[in-house]
Amino acid sequence: MTLIDFIQRLLGRDKPSGALARERLQLVLAHDRSDLNPELLEQMRREILEVVQKYVEIDLESGDVSLETGDRVTALVANLPIRRARPLAIPRTAGADMPDGVVGHGEIGASTDQRTDPDEVDAEKAAVADPPLPG
């Protein structure tokens, strides 16, 4: 650390680089461990939003789908603020028409519970398996 760095730090202008390294590492490892490239993640994000939007109206501006990591487990975290449930919800009997593997109707419907508060946040976590097997 040079004297100038030290003064910058004293004045609170400069964050210690150790903390920066930790943050950057955690982010890059989350992606490394999931083996998802940014395009795939973006595509998955769009598709998740499409599916969720069929059931509830969500705030697209503040919505976020990202990868978080800790303790060698990577989690896909969707943070989707719900404005309100769709007034013309798909009837519960229509479950068979849903595309394969999407989130079930009952799960989302139950947690939103017809609330109209735009700040209501429903976070959905799905653990991705440990680092993928090598090819």
């Binding site: 590492l25 890059v28 490892l29 490394d32 461990r33 060698r72 440990d130 680092p131 993928p132 097997l133 090598p134």
Partner: peptide, 12 residues
């Protein structure tokens, strides 16, 4: 970062 990759391979 590289160590993390190796640990993943050893675990698998």
């Amino acid at each position: 970062r590289d160590a993390d990759r190796v640990i993943g391979l050893l675990n698998s």
